[in-house]
Design a protein around this nucleic acid. Sequence first.
DNA 1: CCGTATCCGGGGGGATACTG
DNA 2: CAGTATCCCCCCGGATACGG
Lengths: 231, 231
Amino acid sequence: MTELSYHQFCPVAMASEILGARWTIVLLRELWAGSTRFNDLRRGVPRMSPALLSKRLRELEGRGIVERRLVRRNPDQFDYVLTPAGQDLGAVIMAIGIWGQRWVETAPTLENTDAGLLMWDMRRNLRTERLPARRATVQFIYSDQPDGRAEWWVLHLPDRVADLCSVDPGFDVDLYVRCDLRTMTAIWMGLDTVPRARSEDRLSLIGAEDVARGMQDWLGLSPFAAYPKHA
Amino acid sequence: MTELSYHQFCPVAMASEILGARWTIVLLRELWAGSTRFNDLRRGVPRMSPALLSKRLRELEGRGIVERRLVRRNPDQFDYVLTPAGQDLGAVIMAIGIWGQRWVETAPTLENTDAGLLMWDMRRNLRTERLPARRATVQFIYSDQPDGRAEWWVLHLPDRVADLCSVDPGFDVDLYVRCDLRTMTAIWMGLDTVPRARSEDRLSLIGAEDVARGMQDWLGLSPFAAYPKHA
DNA sequence: CCGTATCCGGGGGGATACTG
DNA sequence: CAGTATCCCCCCGGATACGG
């Protein structure tokens, strides 16, 4: 998409020359969601090669959409943050996501499960203030996933964004969540709910009952979960 | 973009697999603007090959975004119209266009002038009810364009959408509009105005003075003209 | 007027390895 | 941790010509 211009003055075409490149919109979604570090971005776009990620970031920087900023004067430590122009793309990302939530069929969507990506998204949107304890550990177990992708620990510590581990950090676990990955993905996307899945035995919650009962509440959902499928 | 999936359940990624293919957004803009016939669509995306246009239309049909509909039971005569899912993409197109109008630099945009495309867009948005005469012919002359692309006639007849010709239809001309193509493009995009261009001698209007005086009014602008550049 | 068929080239980007 | 470097394949899509 570099020199392949549409040669149209229409602003839709001009903008599409930037946004239409492969991976760009998905990357922007991850930046918009809040990731700033290179390896954090990689967790949000795990199937994008680091070479291409680096290339896209430089393109977006050249377009004034992303700013590359030193972290604490540490050389070789960079934050990638959206400029005002990049933040304004939030309206585009929202419009695309809302349309996708409304009109893309759920079956192919739920073929694209990815435990690491789901946990990475969920961790970011946890409403930790709705967790009863000042400190809590929740272990997710995806019964259908292979070793290394099946067990995840989410640690909520006071005054911090939640931590995510794929190896046992050794803390006492307040709640064990066990289900298959599709079920958890569907819940996150607003296509299912914790109470329904639990009552239908697709989801098992073991541990502190108050944490279990509040799960639909403290588990933040996808930014698009609230938009219903088309009638 | 056919089988190259992002493998992400995020609705932004799922939607982008459809919308991210080259030319797709530009084509959707033309459908959204109201073109339905194959050759009308071609006028809105003149640099897209007919083979690719046909392919994209079939893809969009397969996705439930476009419906292919027989014209008056005439075999081999088809209308391509947006389904409800396709109409909902209007929000995406608007968001992209508004962002483009706000943030894409005007200099590269105005490199992409195209007289045929501009006239095609302008013809569609003419506010013929603001034209004083029940019938009016306006001739546009682009002084910097080669033969065949320099002269255009817009015919307003009662109770019809305006006609566009690139050869002299032979009617009496009510107003001659002469300027270079950049000036007219900038006016259409809301980056300039008829009175300003006229007062600065970049635009010459000759003919019925009431039609000339009302031009900024009866000349409809781009759907994005009203959105100002970023501060 | 409404597309289809075919050919062919360029380069985008996937994969992997590697370095400061 | 934060990217670069490189290779190479594949497929997208531009161009052109042609059929109904």
